[in-house]
Design a protein around this nucleic acid. Sequence first.
RNA 1: GACCCCAUCGUCUAACGGUCAGGACUCCGGAUUUUCAUUCCGGCAACACGGGUUCGAUUCCCGUUGGGGUCGCCA
Length: 587
Amino acid sequence: MCRSTKTSSTRGPTGRPPGTTCAARTPRVTSPPLTPRWSSTPAAACSKTAGTTRQKRPCAAMASRWCATPKPPRTEPRAEAAAGHPPATRTVSPFCGAQTGAVFVHTPSSDPMTLRVRFAPSPTGHLHIGGARTALSNYLEARREGGAFVLRIEDTDPERSKKEHEEQILRDLAWLGLRWTEGPDVGGPFGPYRQSERYDRYRAVAMDLLARGLAYRCNATPEELDQMRAEQSAKGEDPRYDRRNRDKDLGPDCGPHAIRVKMPIEGLTVIDDLIKGRIEIRNELLDDLVILRTDGTPTYNFVVVVDDHDMGINLVARGDDHINNTPKQIHIYHALGAEVPRFAHLPMILGPDGSRLSKRHGHTSLGQYRDMGIVPEAMLNYLARLGWSHGDQEVFTEAELIEHFRLSDVGSSGARWDMDKLEWLNQTWIQSFASAELVERALPFLEAEGYVTAGLGARLPAIIGAFQKRSRTLVELAKQARFFFIDDAELSWDEAAVAKHLKPEAGALLSALADRLEAEPTWEEPALTAVVDALLAERGAKMGKLAQPVRVALTGQGVGPGVYEMLLGLGKEISVRRLRAGAARAT
RNA sequence: GACCCCAUCGUCUAACGGUCAGGACUCCGGAUUUUCAUUCCGGCAACACGGGUUCGAUUCCCGUUGGGGUCGCCA
């Protein structure tokens, strides 16, 4: 029997169940949900059709929305980007073909489609760096193609979803520099963008599936199912739903029940993944998954498909831990009569030991890296380079990433998190900042150390500049700058350095230097250099003779910034005072 | 266990049948220097294994091993 015959008879003229307001939700880009995207009649759909290759091209009209953002110059849409996309997904025997063994290939819309991608975090915690990577990949793809980047909140878990998490995730994404064209905060034509606000829609779709015989009621209790799985395991079988209620056609009066969707029982589902290539899964392995729980709330695999369809998402890029969900989702698309998007499954980010990155490996949330003084440019750069490369280039600006990054060029193997490389990139980026830029970035970290940064005038950029080439992170910068901000009495003294460099003859030099500097009206590098050079010339000494004693006197330590950097950062008063104190110590 | 994914220096990666297997991080030397850092030069270091296919495999195929992921009325 060809199931879609029944489908067509139950769908009705509008293809929409009563009470569904989906048309209002999908003003454009997609046809109304529940209307088959595949062309012609159900009978035609059941017949064998040839594979088709979807063509996609950048939409110039959509590019303007990105141009509204001030940042980097947009690169030209690339003509070659349009070519060569593989067929989205090919399914062998979904509902209609399953029973006949026919090969079914859905026919994509012929409309030139604007790329629409999404990032759908669940607000149950902070933004994980894996999530950040996924978000970035989607974002770059959208930017290059002039498409839409949709942010959707997957808050169907009322227990764990928290508003403050959602807000924090949005802030973290913004910190990274990602900007979305549609989302819960900015709105958009496909809202609402929080799943908790779309429950009516999910229920309506589920009821429609039920009415069309593509889903069914299952009154097995979770306890019964647990027992079933336990028995299966005991017998050495794979634990899975035994389809016990699939063909019973249970009515609404069957007691507390969930709604399950019917998966095909035989055949093959094929995913043509942008990153992984061809993936085949035997349909017999697919469980009839619950789409509506007993309490009426929808489940993840269901809402994802409904939303992605409603929102016109045509490329889904996510972690490869979702690969096993994909065939089930594809069949839900088919049940909805919806076009299946292309998929790109990004490999996982692994911990340094090769296992899945977790808290025990250290920091896993984006916010923690921000707090440790990683700049967003470096994080963006590092995240993009994980699993992807462009020639021998290591440092990329956002604009360069938008131009060169492609999901299809991402490697298919997992990548380990390498803090050393991240810090190296961070240092490289810190070195690239203009003075005022670095000051602005470093200020919060200085304040976090408890330093008073107000009223420093030109000393502040001098202090921060002194560490621009000496810091791998902004926290490191702030900690190194400590001697600039504390009272003389608080200086910590490296006794070995003191013993080595603050000897009597050095004391005389320091004392003389202090006198001359005190008399110097111009506290700028050329003037200071002149003072030091003159002193050195008179004494017939080299800089090497003076630098270390000065450094120890000024900082208490044997290592630190250059002499003039210290002098400029400290200012005249403190410099002279510390030099005198150092001279006194040296006698 | 079943299913799915993956496999080049320690790490991130390049190579798209013929290369002295390239670059970057880390590490180790050296140069510059005012200590440290920066910068510049140099060095160590890899095709997991076994079968095919081929005149020729790191590249293609199969298997083994190893690693990762998924097996919920979580997302």
